[in-house]
Design a protein around this nucleic acid. Structure first.
Lengths: 129, 129
DNA sequence: TATGGACCTTGTAGTCGCTACAGGGTCAAG
DNA sequence: CTTGACCCTGTAGCGACTACAAGGTCCATA
């Protein structure tokens, strides 16, 4: 299986796959006679896992930690729980920030009286004083 | 007023101020005999405006557009409204995405049975099919 | 007057997670 | 045998800063 097929199987792109190999996240596969990367089903599984975790907003370093843990089958899975909870806390924080931001923008926009720039309430709200 | 004082007045850092000058967002001020940047109250107003807009999540290019508009006092402020509304739409979209993400993470975490990695529901949920 | 330390100057490189080339090589179909 | 779709490597770019390094300036204190 070449890099394009692997990428399609994980709904990503060859550039991203090469990037993951370069940063040591996806093991380098054997090469064909023509120097093409030659992937197996295990690579597909690993890449799909990575893409799914990335889509859920885990950072590359968190993904690396999750993959490392996944390789140690007999350890307690509490470490996985810790990573997931830390990420959830971060997401919750961002949600709160973004919601406050939305309210502030809505208030800003609600003040627009469609006059001239000189009397623009939105710009006034952004300006000091 | 030197760069450190300006930065403190706008609750930011000298590096950021120099960055804004480099990308043409904050006009280069005159220099003192010792080659220090010498800022006026107008610079403070502009930088505070920029930081406030950035804190509200406007991109640098949006801030640039808002500043350009703010300089044209007799134009209609509808263009400002358009920028603000576009940004609000973007924020609302991100909020929805992040909320879906939070729910998915909560569901993932709710499945943790604190056993071994081999039977970890979180890792299973991340793994392919 | 000397000296220390806090500031300022420039330029460059790093962050994150890719993405987009450029300039070549390989492969399968027609 | 040629065409075109893919692959290879290496490097540079994105946004919005941030972090140095190596030097210069300014001001207060000894």
């Amino acid at each position: 299986m070449n890099i394009g097929e692997l990428a399609r199987a994980a709904d990503t792109k060859p550039e991203t796959v090469r990037y993951y190999e370069r940063i040591g996240l996806l093991p380098a596969p054997p090469r064909t006679a023509g120097n093409y990367r030659d992937y197996s089903a295990a690579h597909v599984r690993r890449l799909v896992f990575m893409r799914r975790a990335r889509d859920l907003g885990f950072s590359i370093e968190q993904v690396r930690a999750l993959l490392d843990l996944a390789d140690q089958q007999d350890r307690s899975c509490d470490a996985v729980d810790v990573i997931a909870r830390a990420h959830l806390a971060e997401v919750a924080r961002k949600l709160a920030d973004l919601d406050a931001l939305r309210r502030e923008l809505e208030s800003l926009i609600g003040q627009c009286r469609h006059g001239t720039i000189a009397e623009c309430r939105i710009l006034e709200a952004l300006a000091p004083g």
